[in-house]
Amino acid sequence: MTHEEVKALVEEMGLPYAYDHFAEGESPDPPFICFLYPNAENFSADNLVYHHFNRLDIEVYTDYKDPDMEASIEEVLTSHELYYEKSEVWIETEKMYEVLYELTV
């Protein structure tokens, strides 16, 4: 999946988004999405990279738990036949939830 395809996927989720983070002072009110590629998982053969995979993190930030919004995001991922792992954390200092979707693309 190319970076442009990932951007289109995130755009389909219908929330403001940025790669990695929003610039200082430009963060929209929640909910919003940040996405990034924290690492690569390459498959090798004959001491060469045979196939390249990126790990993709889609971080959804909200003021409150919103199961309907999460279901909508998961529908987008499922419609593109993408497998994901999901986790959630409360960020006390920001008073926000972060719902993290981890994928390999």
Rank of each mutant, 00 (worst) to 15 (best):
P38N: 11
V49H: 01
P28G: 04
E26S: 11
L56Q: 01
K65T: 04
S44R: 03
D57L: 13
E24H: 08
D29E: 15
N54I: 00
F32Q: 01
A8D: 15
E59D: 13
N54S: 07
S27W: 05
P38R: 11
F22L: 02
D29W: 06
M13S: 04
E12Y: 07
I58N: 03
R55P: 00
L9C: 07
L48I: 01
H52K: 15
V60G: 04
P28T: 06
L9N: 04
G25A: 06
F35V: 02
F35D: 02
E41V: 09
L48Q: 14
P30E: 00
Y17W: 13
H51K: 15
Y50S: 05
E11L: 12
E24A: 07
Y37M: 07
S27H: 05
T62F: 12
S44W: 10
G14I: 09
N47V: 01
E24F: 07
K65A: 06
N54L: 07
N39R: 14
G25E: 10
A8G: 06
A18F: 07
Y61R: 02
I33H: 04
L36A: 03
P38Y: 08
Y19L: 12
N54D: 12
N39S: 12
H52M: 12
F32I: 02
G14F: 09
L48D: 06
L36I: 00
H52S: 15
P38F: 10
Y17R: 03
V10A: 07
G14Y: 11
V10E: 09
S27L: 13
A8S: 14
D63W: 09
L15N: 04
F22N: 01
L48A: 07
F22Y: 07
N47R: 10
N54A: 06
D20E: 11
P28E: 04
A18C: 03
E59I: 03
F22T: 05
G25W: 13
E11K: 15
F43M: 12
D20M: 03
F22E: 02
H51Q: 15
H51Y: 15
F32G: 00
S27A: 15
L48M: 10
D57G: 00
F53Q: 06
E24V: 12
D57H: 13
A40D: 05
V10T: 04
P16K: 09
H52R: 15
K65Q: 08
P16A: 10
L56S: 02
M13Q: 05
A8H: 10
Y61Q: 01
D46H: 10
F35N: 00
F53H: 10
E12M: 09
M13N: 04
E24I: 13
H21Q: 12
G14E: 11
E24T: 10
S44N: 06
E24C: 01
A45Y: 09
D29C: 08
F35H: 03
N39V: 04
A8P: 08
L9H: 08
S27N: 05
L36H: 12
F22H: 03
Y19T: 00
D29K: 15
Y61W: 12
A40Y: 05
A45C: 04
N39G: 05
D63S: 14
F22D: 02
H51F: 15
Y19H: 08
